[in-house]
């Protein structure tokens, strides 16, 4: 995208203080940084890491829900779930394209995912054993993702910000369809209500962990704030999510698996109990319930799709050669 040919970055100037100052002034003035503009190497690296992780998350995120497409309880639910999973594939593609503007190739990025070198959101390493999980993913996981993503629409890097605007527009459907599934179960038979409650009990803490480590432990925050890649801290976004979500759960008659959860009249915020960061670190390290399964599924899809990519390229080459031959014959 955007004429990558110009991307032969002048690495020699990578840390020129004058260029850095000019760059920061543009960011401070809320100008968008575009692919061929000068940028500090750290800014480029951070964006490649963040955007590609985000893309991988969309792609791996198709798996837990793909699990239920063939078993959706009605045609309406099946159609909606298919559309949602298709959106996620699309979101992954918008994001890969945005990352590619920074001078990395799609093949490199996919390779980093498959070899485990790149991370994706830990939330997708949890299993989806019940239909209620489809509702919970939409309501909580997509809800948390929206909280994270809305500020990214104003990210200083143009292609990322533009991709996020598209994504946010589409995510809203995901969250609403999820909430509707949970609502249907919560208002259903006692068994259905229990299914919804069990699912909430499993997803609540992992959803809160999606915002990343607490501000006091977050490695990348300050520089990313200065570069306007990040606009709000992890804890601020988490609090926003809790404040928005808890009343939605109570409305359905569900309870949250946190005995310390209480509303603070003075601050107007819901206060939560301690988050088990050891679990988060375990899942990030690759020891979550489904890490291995997810990567195996991606690798299998990649391997089994190889012949399709090869055939398509061979077909395109053959047609181009025939066209060239016909042209010569006509001359």
């Amino acid at each position: 995208m955007y004429a990558q040919a110009l991307n032969v970055a002048e690495k020699a100037h990578a840390d020129d203080p004058e260029l850095r100052a000019r760059f920061q002034a543009r960011v401070d003035a809320e100008e968008k940084i575009e692919p061929n503009d000068w940028m500090p190497e750290g800014y480029r690296r951070t964006l490649v890491r963040q955007i590609s992780q985000h893309a991988h998350s969309e792609i791996v995120g198709m798996l837990p829900e793909g699990n239920w497409i063939t078993r959706a309880p009605s045609l309406k639910r099946k159609a909606a779930l298919l559309a949602k999973v298709q959106d996620e594939g699309g979101h992954g593609l918008y994001l890969y394209s945005a990352a590619e503007t920074l001078g990395v190739s799609r093949e490199e990025l996919v390779g980093q995912l498959l070899t485990g070198k790149a991370k994706y959101s830990s939330i997708f390493n949890y299993p989806t054993p019940s239909w209620a999980d489809m509702g919970m993913i939409g309501w909580l996981v997509d809800g948390a993702a929206i909280m994270n993503q809305i500020p990214l629409c104003r990210c200083s890097y143009g292609p990322y910000a533009r991709a996020m605007i598209r994504i946010c527009k589409e995510e809203s459907f995901h969250q609403r369809q999820g909430y509707e599934i949970v609502m249907t179960l919560a208002k259903g038979s006692p068994a259905q209500k229990k299914m919804a409650q069990d699912s909430l009990n499993r997803w609540w803490w992992p959803a809160l962990m999606m915002f990343g480590p607490s501000d006091k432990d977050s490695q990348h925050s300050d520089q990313n704030m200065a570069w306007k890649i990040k606009r709000f801290s992890n804890d601020d976004l988490r609090q926003k999510f809790i404040d928005a979500t808890v009343p939605q759960g109570h409305f359905l008659g569900l309870t949250f698996p946190d005995p310390d959860l209480r509303f603070n009249e003075a601050t107007g915020h819901w206060e939560h109990g301690p988050i088990d960061w050891s679990e988060f670190n375990r899942v990030v390290r690759g020891e979550g319930p489904c890490n291995r399964e997810r990567l195996k599924a991606r690798q299998k899809a990649h391997d089994e799709g190889a012949w399709v990519r090869e055939a398509a390229l061979a077909h395109a080459e053959k047609r181009a050669a025939r066209k060239a031959a016909a042209k010569i014959a006509a001359e």
């Binding site: 995208m1 990519r309 398509a312 181009a320």
Partner: peptide, 8 residues
């Protein structure tokens, strides 16, 4: 509106 990869 964006870009994509395709053989032809």
């Amino acid at each position: 509106c964006g870009s994509l990869h395709a053989p032809d």
